[in-house]
Design a protein around this nucleic acid. Structure first.
Length: 570
RNA sequence: UGGGACGUCGCCAAGUGGUAAGGCAGCGGGUUUUGGGUCCGCCAUUCGUAGGUUCGAAUCCUACCGUCCCAGCCA
């Protein structure tokens, strides 16, 4: 039996995951031999901002499809606009792509690598009579372009001879004209129903220092001209981009056809939108610059570095990308889908640990003074190989404030006066007495423990409704814990129909800092970036703000909370 | 209103003429020393609307409705 036949491979792929139209397209291309079974994609970011979860979708698509079909992917910086771009972004982007788990090997490119070739090709276009130098100023150019419903007018410079055009273009390159005084335009059709085809600009004069080519050039090519040719020069097969470039595809095709170059296929897919957040680089930049968040990697940001700092894993993001699929219809994915992906992964890998966020002191009245003992706790019930650890138990403990109610509702299973609960990995206790301060605040619980109920003992007949977590007061490690909520209070902050700005919807409580959380002592060993499940609370990771004896944890995501759901119903 | 695209369950999304996959969310139950996890079950007679073709339509045709993109010397 031939297990390597394309048919078998195809069916395996189909079984493994839902198909999408790009996968189908590649399968079809391989069937017809359109690219000789090659799959060569590229991820082409402009280095003018940080990558976000939307880019992650594109990265996973481009690298993922190539991987799946035995192809390769280039990383190419689309750096044709030096006034917006910066080396800082180049480095950050490479770090993020690598972190996501993808490898461009030796195929790191820059559109600026092709500036010489691009210039030659522009000259070729001029010689063919397919491009001309235009001296209309921006306002005039807009007028001549026409509108959505009206055809444009030909530029008065449109009929210059190829010789004249070439002569001026060379002088443009040589810096003989001031910035913005002239542009090179493709000569297509000013009455084309698609505005993109109305003699688009392909070169502009711009004396700006380029992060790679320095001051070599004073003219820079436009996206439409650069992108298709870069794809062509790199031998790309499938040029995947987002829907807003659909209008530009005829131009992509036009340049390659006119110049008679190898011609990749551009295919557009819908970009990712997530509710309760914003995704545009402009808005993300505004959040950073106006101080709504603390930088690009603020854990509330949907940037890759923000998610990384929040505690998301590359696996979870890749999985998320696969889950949401790829299609052409614009959609807004629920944030909960991303949260599912990170819980799903962390559940399998994160060690469990006990931590009390809002401590309430518990004294075990019948536990001997000055006694302590170590109790064995399982590190991860999902993964036996993670072993066990010893947790100290003492007379004075902390439990979570939320785990006690003086006057509990019917379905409250935790501690209340006279009730019993199990302390995780330890004993069953009963609450005998509630101690309050002068303000009536509960400051301490006095409880009895039952030595025979020690964890691991056979304690049949002793059923308790719930198990709560705790930390030995004597051995607790103090920590700062940062609790994050959605940055926006509305599902779609981009909706400005009420005359509001997206910043009007910012959640004032998106960050709550807990200064005096109590952690079990094993956490002294935690290193920056380490991820844990704080039992019953959620997943947390060590932030790089941690210093020596002052660890800082970020809450990545809560655990699913059925109790919250029940109590909210009431 | 010119051109280009898209409308399948609350949210994603398969399906490409043979009688609506899957995931998330939700709901019900078993198990559980995390109200976590896990397991089982339920969750679109219907595919934007209206007609038409066909033995048979989410899939083909026609019209209509709705949403998005395009008038940067941005990408």
């Amino acid at each position: 039996m031939d297990n390597n036949s394309p048919k078998v491979e195809e069916s395996i792929i189909k079984e493994r995951k839902a198909s999408n139209f790009i996968r189908s397209l590649i399968i079809e291309d391989n069937k017809t031999g359109k690219w000789g079974n090659r799959v060569h994609t590229r991820f082409p970011p402009e280095p003018n901002g940080y990558l976000h979860i939307g880019h992650a979708k594109s990265i996973c698509l481009n690298f993922g499809m190539a991987q799946e079909f035995g192809g390769i992917t280039n990383l190419r910086f689309d750096d044709t606009n030096p006034v917006k771009e910066d080396i800082e972004y180049v480095d950050a982007i490479m770090e993020d792509v690598k972190w996501l788990g993808f490898d461009w090997e030796d195929r790191l490119f820059y559109a600026s690598d092709y500036f010489d070739r691009l210039y030659e090709l522009a000259c070729e276009l001029i010689k063919k009579g397919k491009a001309f130098v235009c001296e209309l100023n921006p306002e005039e150019m807009r007028e001549y372009r026409g509108t959505l419903t009206q055809a444009g007018k030909n530029s008065p410079f449109r009929d210059r001879t190829p010789e004249e055009n070439l002569d001026i273009f060379v002088k443009m390159k040589n810096g003989e004209y001031p910035d913005g005084s002239k542009v090179l335009r493709a000569k297509i059709d000013m009455s084309h129903p698609n505005i993109v085809m109305r003699d688009p600009v392909i070169y502009r004069i711009r004396r700006a220092h380029h992060h790679r080519t320095g001051d070599k050039w004073c003219i820079y090519p436009m996206y439409d001209f650069t992108h298709c040719i870069s794809d062509s020069l790199e031998n790309i097969t499938h040029s995947l981009c987002t829907l807003e470039f659909e209008n530009n595809r005829p131009l992509y095709d036009w340049f390659l056809d006119e110049l008679n170059l190898y011609h990749p296929q551009q295919t557009e897919f819908a970009r990712l939108n997530l509710n309760y957040t914003v995704m545009s680089k402009r808005k993300l930049l505004q959040l950073v610059q106006e101080g709504y968040v603390n930088g690009w990697d603020d854990p509330r940001m949907p940037t890759i570095c923000g998610l990384r700092r929040r505690g998301y894993t590359p696996e979870s993001i890749r999985n998320f990308a696969e889950m949401i699929g790829v299609a052409k219809s614009e959609s807004i994915v629920e944030f909960g889908q991303l949260e599912f992906a990170i819980r799903d992964h962390l559940n399998k890998v994160a060690p469990r640990v006990m931590a009390v966020l809002n401590p309430l002191k518990v004294s075990i009245t019948n536990y001997p003074e000055n006694q302590s003992e170590f109790l064995e706790a399982v590190n991860n019930p999902e993964d036996e190989t993670q072993g066990t650890r010893q947790v100290p138990f003492t007379k004075e403990l902390y439990i979570e404030k939320d785990d006690f109610m003086e006057d509990p509702p019917k379905k409250f299973f935790r501690l209340s006066p006279g009730s019993e609960v199990r302390l995780r990995y330890a004993y069953i206790i009963r609450c005998d007495e509630v101690v309050k301060d002068d303000n009536g605040e509960i400051v301490e619980l006095r409880c009895t423990y039952f030595p025979e109920t020690k964890s691991g003992n056979q304690t049949e007949g002793r059923k308790v409704k719930s198990t709560i977590h705790w930390v030995s007061a004597e051995n607790a490690v103090d920590a700062e814990v940062r609790i994050y909520e959605q940055l926006f209070m509305v599902e779609n902050p981009n909706d400005t129909s009420e005359g509001k700005s997206f910043t009007d919807y910012i959640n004032p409580d998106s960050l709550k800092i807990i200064k005096n959380a109590k952690l079990e002592p094993s956490l002294t060993a935690a290193k920056i970036g380490d991820k844990y499940q704080f039992e019953r609370l959620g997943y947390f990771c060590v932030d790089y703000d941690s210093k020596g004896n002052n660890p800082v944890f970020n809450r990545t995501v809560t655990l699913k909370d059925t109790w919250a759901k029940i109590s909210n119903r009431a």
